[in-house]
Design a protein around this nucleic acid. Structure first.
Length: 513
RNA sequence: GAGUCGGUAGCUCAGCUGGCAGAGCAACGCCCUUUUAAGGCGUGGGUCGUGGGUUCGAUCCCCACCCGACUCACCA
C-alpha cells in the first residue's frame, strides 16, 4: 500500500502529513547515522554516569542513545518519554528551554509520534520518583514512523507483578508482522536471543572437539537421508528436476568417506508435509558425523552437549518447561525400545510376527493403515504408549531394522539396528545411529525401500547410486546424529509452538489467494 | 484433510430478541516544566473478514468462501 493511498488509516494519513511538514522545515526525516555512546542497559547499570548534585550539567558525563519512542507523557513545556533500543528501555526527559522553542513545540511535540526512532544526547539523572533518566539537551529524528504501533501498557501491581494492558496478542498478526511483535513484546526478543545462544553453544562445543562445520547442497537431484515427501523445483538452464533437501545425511557421510574425522552442518531442511504445533515445512537440524565412533559414544556426546547448552542458557541443568521441571544433568536413562514398550503396555513385542503385532496394536486401541509393516506398527505403538510419557531426557535404543534403512545392524540383537532417539518432554529431540557402512547391506536396504516406494509409499527412500559408490570406496565406522534445533529451542525457551521459535513461520497468504 | 472456536476503530475488547456502531488506550485541538497505565477539557475516526440470501430493516439469522487459533490425523 502506498502511503498516499486513500484507504490508509486516519492516523497513517496524519503521519504522512507530518512527514511533509518536517521536510518543508528542512529537517531530514531519514538521516544517515547517529553515533551512540551507550545502550539503555549500559546507562541503567552504570551508576557512575549519574550527575552528582554538586555538578553542573555540562560537567556531568554525556551519553548518546538512540531508539524508538514507546510512550510519551507531555506536560506542557517538558516531556517524559520512553526510548526502546535493542537492550531495553530508558526514560528521557526533554524541556523546551533546553532544546529550543521550535525544536520542542513543533518538531518534537507536534511532528514526532510514538514509534518514531530518535537520537538523544544529554546527561543522566534520577527523577523524584527514583527513575534513572536521560536529560536531553539534543534531540534528533532518525526515522519517521508512518504507521501507529500497538501500545501495550505495563503496570506494576502492589505485589510487584507486571500487568499488561492492551497487549499485542493476536497470534496471526504477531506471526505475520514479526517486526511489530519484536518491537512490542520484549519476551519474543528473548526467545530468539536464547535460540541464537543455543546454536552458538552447540557450535562452540563441536568446534572445541575439532569437528568441521561444512555446507552441503540444498538443491539435490536425488533427495535422501530421511523418510518424507520433498518439495520439487526445476533448474531452467540444466532443464532438470531438483529437490529441496529433506536431510543432509548422505552428503555428510560422503565427506566422512573423503577423510574428515568429524563434520557437522546446521541445515535448513524442507519437508512437504502438514503444519502443526510441532511442524513447519522448513525447519532446522544439526547433523554431526564422527568417524571411528558408534552410537554408544554418541549417547555420551549428546548428553554432554545438551547439558552444556542448558547450563549456558539457564546457568543450571534444570529447565522449567510448562508444568515440568526438566533436568538435563548426565547421565540420562538408556532404555531399549522393546523394553520401554513392554514396561508401558505389558507386551513383549520383540521378534513377533506381523499378525501378532497387528493384534497387539488393536488391543491397545491403535488404528493402523492396512499397508502398515512391522516397523510402522511398532513405531505407532511406541509413539502412542511410550513417547508422550517420557518427560525427562531419555535415550530409547535399538530400533527395528525396517524403520532405519541407513543404520547399522545391531551387533547382537537380531532384527534391530544400533539406533537411538532422545525423547524429552514427550517429543523426539535427537536421532542417531551407528552408521551403516557396509555397501552391500546398504544396497539391499535401498532396494527394500524402492519396493515400498513402488508399492505406493511416497516417503520411502530412492536409491542413491553415487552414495553407494562412495560407500564402496570405504567409509570408516561412524556415529551419526541429528538434533532438531526448533524442537530443542521450544524446550529450552518453554515455547509450546514451533511458531514461537521461528521468526517467520509458514502462513497462508494474507487475504486469501 | 476433519472437528471446535474466532475475525467489529491503529491496538485490546463490548455490542441483549434483528431497530442510528460502543469503551479504554492511540490520534487530533487546547491547558499543564520531575511524569510514569501522567492528568484535565474538547473533537474526529468503521467495507462490522468477503460474497450471496431472508427481511421494511442484518454486526446480529441462513448459505458459500477467505484467514487464523486450538484439537485430531501425517510427519521431525
Amino acid at each position: 500500500m502506498s502511503s498516499t493511498e486513500p484507504s490508509a488509516s486516519e492516523q497513517h494519513q496524519i503521519r504522512v502529513q507530518k512527514l511533509q511538514e518536517l521536510r518543508e522545515m528542512g529537517i531530514i526525516p531519514y538521516p544517515y547515522s547517529f553515533d551512540t555512546t551507550h545502550t539503555s542497559k549500559q546507562i541503567l547499570e552504570n551508576e557512575d554516569l549519574v550527575k552528582q548534585d554538586d555538578q553542573d550539567a555540562e560537567d556531568a558525563p554525556q551519553v548518546a542513545v538512540a531508539g524508538r519512542i514507546m510512550t510519551r507523557r507531555i506536560m506542557g513545556k517538558s516531556t517524559f518519554f520512553n526510548l526502546q533500543d535493542s537492550d531495553g528501555t530508558i526514560q528521557v526527559y526533554i524541556r523546551r528551554d533546553d532544546v529550543g522553542q521550535e525544536n520542542y513545540n513543533t518538531v518534537f511535540k507536534k511532528l514526532t509520534d510514538i514509534g518514531d526512532i530518535v537520537g538523544i544526547k544529554g546527561h543522566v539523572f534520577i527523577t523524584g520518583t527514583g527513575e534513572t533518566t536521560v536529560y536531553a539537551n539534543e534531540f534528533v529524528l532518525l526515522s519517521k514512523s508512518l504507521r501507529p504501533i500497538p501500545i501495550p501498557k505495563e503496570v506494576e501491581t502492589e505485589e510487584g507483578e507486571t500487568k499488561v494492558y492492551d497487549a499485542f496478542s493476536d497470534k496471526e498478526q504477531r506471526y505475520r508482522q514479526r517486526y511489530l511483535d519484536l518491537i512490542v513484546n520484549p519476551d519474543v526478543r528473548d526467545v530468539f536471543q536464547q535460540r541464537s545462544e543455543m546454536v552458538q553453544a552447540m557450535r562452540n562445543f563441536m568446534n572445541d572437539k575439532g569437528y568441521l562445520e561444512v555446507e552441503t547442497p540444498i538443491l539435490q537431484p536425488i533427495y535422501g537421508g530421511a523418510s518424507a515427501r520433498p518439495f520439487v523445483t526445476h533448474h531452467n538452464t540444466l532443464d532438470m528436476k531438483l529437490y529441496l533437501r529433506i536431510a543432509n545425511e548422505l552428503y555428510l557421510k560422503r565427506l566422512i568417506v573423503g577423510g574428515y574425522d568429524g563434520v557437522y552442518e546446521f541445515s535448513k531442511d524442507f519437508r512437504n508435509e502438514g503444519l502443526s504445533r510441532f511442524h513447519n515445512p522448513e525447519f532446522t537440524q544439526v547433523e554431526l558425523y564422527v568417524a571411528y565412533k558408534d552410537y554408544n559414544w554418541m549417547m555420551d556426546f549428546v548428553e554432554a552437549m545438551v547439558e552444556h547448552v542448558a547450563k549456558k542458557l539457564h546457568g543450571s541443568t534444570t529447565v522449567q518447561v510448562g508444568k515440568h521441571e526438566i533436568d538435563f544433568s548426565r547421565p540420562w536413562p538408556r532404555i531399549p525400545m522393546f523394553e520401554a514398550i513392554e514396561e508401558a503396555t505389558g507386551k513383549d513385542l520383540y521378534g513377533k510376527n506381523l499378525s501378532t503385532l497387528k493384534e497387539a496394536a488393536h488391543e491397545l486401541g491403535i488404528e493402523l493403515e492396512g499397508s502398515a509393516g512391522k516397523g510402522k506398527i511398532i513405531d505407532e505403538i511406541f509413539g502412542e504408549c511410550v513417547e508422550p510419557n517420557l518427560i525427562q531426557p531419555t535415550f530409547i535404543t535399538d530400533y527395528p531394522i525396517e524403520m532405519s534403512p541407513l543404520a547399522k545392524k545391531h551387533r547382537t540383537k537380531e532384527g534391530l539396528v544400533e539406533r537411538f532417539e532422545c525423547i524429552c518432554n514427550g517429543k523426539e529431540i535427537a536421532n542417531a545411529f551407528s552408521e551403516l557402512n557396509d555397501p552391500q547391506d546398504q544396497r539391499e536396504r535401498f532396494e527394500a525401500q524402492a519396493k515400498l516406494r513402488s508399492a505406493g509409499d511416497e516417503e520411502a527412500m530412492t536409491i542413491d547410486e553415487d552414495f553407494l559408490r562412495a560407500l564402496e570406496y570405504g567409509m570408516p565406522p561412524t556415529a551419526g546424529l541429528g538434533i532438531g534445533i526448533d524442537r530443542l529451542s521450544m524446550i529450552m525457551t518453554d515455547s509450546d509452538s514451533i511458531r514461537d521459535v521461528l521468526f517467520f513461520p509458514q502462513m497462508k497468504p494474507e487475504g486469501g489467494k
